[in-house]
């Protein structure tokens, strides 16, 4: 039991969390400091702070899960054999883990920099 529940539940849970993250993202970028221009230096400096990297990794994980689980569900709706369903699920897991590691790798270098957060 429960097979079927977790993908169903996590799809909804990630949707809610994504909304919260997107809200925070929009607020920080556009409303926190009106008139400020987003530059590479400013972003890089912010990403040097571990909390921000963790935040972005979290956002990435949610997006990847939500997107791939959604796509997987849509494909499963086409009606596959049990083996086909397993294959699609594993493909999604591999793609998801890969995409996430790629993102981790892309942000990791910023962690080394030391600079004040440019508010």
């Amino acid at each position: 039991m429960g097979r079927g529940f977790w993908p169903w539940f996590l799809q909804r849970a990630t949707a809610v969390l994504l909304l919260a993250f997107l809200g925070a993202h929009l607020w920080l970028e556009h409303f926190a400091a009106p008139g400020r221009v987003t530059t590479y230096r400013r972003v890089a400096a912010r990403l040097a702070h571990p909390a921000f990297v963790a935040l972005d990794w979290g956002l990435l994980a949610l997006v990847v899960f939500h997107g791939l689980n959604g796509a997987r569900t849509a494909v499963l709706d086409l009606g596959l054999s049990p083996a086909g369903e397993r294959a699609v699920t594993w493909l999604a897991v591999v793609l998801g883990v890969g995409a996430f590691l790629l993102g981790v790798d892309a942000l990791a270098p910023f962690l080394g920099m030391r600079a004040p957060i440019p508010w």
Partner: peptide, 15 residues
């Protein structure tokens, strides 16, 4: 009833 309902081909198949 849970075995039949709480299953990928039970309630969770409904979109």
């Amino acid at each position: 009833r849970r075995g039949a309902l709480d299953h990928p081909d039970g309630v969770w198949r409904c979109h």
